[in-house]
Design a protein around this nucleic acid. Structure first.
Lengths: 333, 333
DNA sequence: CTGTTAGCGCATTCAC
DNA sequence: GTGAATGCGCTAACAG
């Protein structure tokens, strides 16, 4: 199947110049006399010539495409990051190969390898956990890698996040200050560093500052899904929790709806604060208070950082922390 | 930046065979003696050789990547389709280059051209409107194209959808049968064929069958956003509508929340039925009744169809209609 | 400012 | 069953 019929050679012949010259005008090289430039441009137009990026990639060792590994685009959180990434990529003339990993370590390794075989110029990785095997693969390549919305507890890779620990600490403190003695912490898998190390740490620090002993019965490790959230109300009640810090919006929405459906009033009887500030927080009733994160920007900044890495520009900070905030809505008092 | 150091030539030398033989084993060609195959495989393992897909693409004229043009991945509807596409693509050893177009005709044309310059083997297009300029561009390429969740009123391109007209007609009929004399039709831009030609047609047909005159005051053309939905309550009330057929879930959620916030009870005082059955429908209160579409499958089937086109296999039907249904929830009586 | 010459890494005839 | 040769379409020195 011939996708492309006319080549740089055709326009060279037609314009009575060498292919080098055609290459120059196509690549915007200044060293071309305006007259011949115009001549070439006219032929390109006339022949409807379109440079073959694959050949170009082989010759130049640059593909102007970056690989993006994401757990699931269907998750609004990641979709927002992906959008930020794509916009900035487009801005810098890159395209993205998007792959869903389902946070599956094996898939991540596979996908990384096919991305590398396709000679992507860089990689943006989103994933809550980095297996040793994956780290090994990362280490084997010189292709620049940036983590977006994903921590690297080993402090090796460039990444952009918010300060999850501080954010959680602050909001749990607020919950406590408002009189909640028993604040639950409902999170995704604790083996994921972002939960088990960063967020949980913030939770514990807030308790400690308030002089409240840590009770692991108040920690609910889940799979981050809406469905699971809807089923949590009885368990939450049974440990006498009066508020919950939740690490995912869909999960939080599930909890809240589960509470409401069981007749528990939010926020009067139970306060909920969530973490990702996706647009879902505005769509449920009551609207959910949330830690705010600049989702789109996390993706955008990560991609911008990657362009610097790809162009060998200096980067002043590998661990970029973007500002977070709190959006008070109706699920907290 | 050398992403790849060792080539097919290195393994050929190291294994004391020709590069042709290495190429054969890499590509699973049967004409290789098991012994030499093993020898080569061992060297590949030892050298950690990874075929360069770009070079392969240039030589074979196949990139095993397809371009996907989507209005916005941040929209759950499209994210679901994209997920289906990626999964099937992966299944058939393809990768996807994902690009957001914002339904902007100019961007679509640009993106299409860069996709083609990158020699993608096929394209999946999602977009509610196809400008003439875009059709022109489509026409100029031999690269297979499939529309996913996007109609082609000119009946030229392969596509997979549900029968939007029939679905809307059916649900509007139900609304009328339940006693609603004035059913509003709230949709996205009417210049988009899917709204202006398919869905609106179903709405009109339902009215006609019921002997109710068409009143264009009941048709609300919007931009499909949640925000817009929240502002629609006064207008809807002013035309004495008692129910609405809505073409987008976020839009519908906005309308519903707008109603609730204004003290209008859904579904008692106002019935709402939406169209995309994204998970949002379950998360809002009351849960929204919706036309159901197999979102993931639309993407999956579209990608499957594209593989057939790319492999020159026969396709029996260019206009694939997947089954739709109705999920009765709480926003209708 | 422009042309010539080499490859980039691999698939693919065509011989052997 | 295996190797040698050629070219995919383009960029990148290197001359001139």
């Amino acid at each position: 199947m011939d996708k492309q019929t006319i080549t740089i050679y055709d326009v060279a012949r037609e314009a009575s110049v060498s292919m080098a010259t055609v290459s120059r005008v196509v690549n915007g090289n200044a060293n071309v006399k305006p007259a011949t430039r115009k001549k070439v441009l006219d032929v390109i137009e006339k022949l409807d010539y379109r440079p073959n990026a694959v050949a170009r990639g082989l010759a130049s060792k640059k593909t102007t495409t970056v690989g993006v590994i994401v757990p699931d685009v269907t998750n609004m959180y990641f979709a927002s990051l992906a959008r930020g990434i794509d916009d900035v990529a487009t801005m810098y003339k890159y395209n993205i190969i998007l792959t869903n990993s389902d946070s599956n370590g094996e898939k991540e390794v596979n996908v990384l390898n096919t991305l590398l075989s396709k000679q992507v110029d860089g990689i943006i990785f989103m994933g809550n956990e980095i297996t040793d095997k994956l780290r090994e693969e990362f280490k084997r390549t010189k292709t620049p890698i940036v983590f977006a919305g994903s921590v690297d507890e080993q402090n090796i890779y460039a990444r952009v996040n918010i300060d999850y620990t501080a954010a959680v600490q602050e909001e749990v403190k607020n919950l406590i200050d408002r009189g909640n003695k028993r604040v639950a912490f409902v999170c995704g898998p604790l083996e994921q560093a972002i939960n088990g190390q960063f967020r949980l740490k913030g939770y514990k620090q807030a308790l400690k500052s308030a002089g409240i002993p840590y009770d692991d019965k108040l920690v609910f490790e889940t799979d981050d899904t809406y469905k699971t959230g809807t089923l949590l109300q009885p368990a939450l009640m049974s440990v006498n929790a009066t508020a919950a810090m939740v690490t995912d919006d869909e999960l939080a929405a599930g909890i809240m709806n589960g509470m409401s459906d069981a007749g528990v009033k939010v926020p009067d009887d139970f306060e909920i604060i969530t973490s990702n500030d996706t647009k879902l927080t505005e769509m449920v009733r009551p609207k959910m208070s949330s830690i705010t994160q600049p989702l789109y920007d996390i993706g955008a900044v990560a991609m911008r950082l990657l362009t610097k890495l790809m162009h060998n520009e200096p980067v002043d900070e590998k661990d970029v922390l973007l500002p977070y905030g709190l959006m008070k809505r109706e699920s907290t008092k």
